Amino acid sequence: MFHIEPETSRDHDEVEWLYDTCFAPGREALSSYRLREGVPKVAELCLAARDDDDILAGAIRFWPVLVGGTRALLLGPVAVHPTRQGEGLGALLMTESLGRARRLGWHRVMLVGDEPYYRRFGFARLDGVDMPPPTNPDRVLGLALQEGAWLGVQGEVTRIL
């Protein structure tokens, strides 16, 4: 059983350790991290999952960005501790956080990831959305949280200052 709650300052160091554990060294050099620098995360959507022993098992974060001047959420990173993978926690974090985003009135969310994995949550390739290099355009995916939210939204992805 997992308990999913908004990430707090108590969770911060453990979440950073989890991301370091799950992702390759140098993860902060990726273009998506440049979009996050100096920008507060969307706190009500950043979730930490703990097991019954209060051990951090997974986490997900979201950041506001602009796509051609239109507001969107940038999802990521999402991580599940290697010893807890295969238990459905990643899917649980995804569906819980996306449901919260929808209820909070967000219209669109994007991420950089593997389409075969994220397709099951409704994500599809975003044509005409340009992430900073060196991002592979085939990995730029989006989900409309409200019908038609990505229609006509194109351009460069930039930080909200």
Rank of each mutant, 00 (worst) to 15 (best):
F2Y: 13
H3L: 14
I4A: 13
I4W: 09
E5M: 13
E5R: 11
E7W: 06
T21Y: 08
C22H: 11
G26P: 05
L30N: 07
S32P: 03
Y33G: 01
R34C: 06
L35A: 01
R36Y: 02
E37H: 14
G38E: 07
P40Q: 04
A43R: 07
L45C: 04
A49H: 09
I55G: 12
G58Q: 02
A59G: 10
A59S: 09
R61T: 14
P64V: 02
V65M: 00
G69N: 05
A72H: 08
L74H: 02
V80I: 04
H81G: 11
Q85L: 06
A91V: 00
L92D: 09
L92F: 01
M94P: 09
M94Q: 00
T95H: 08
T95E: 08
G99C: 10
G99K: 08
R100Y: 04
A101D: 11
R103C: 10
G105N: 08
W106K: 07
Y118I: 07
R119T: 09
R120T: 14
R120M: 12
G122I: 13
F123H: 09
A124R: 15
L126D: 10
D130M: 13
P132C: 05
P133N: 15
D138C: 12
G142H: 10
Q146R: 13
W150E: 12
G152K: 14
G155A: 13
E156Y: 02
E156C: 03
I160Y: 05
I160F: 08
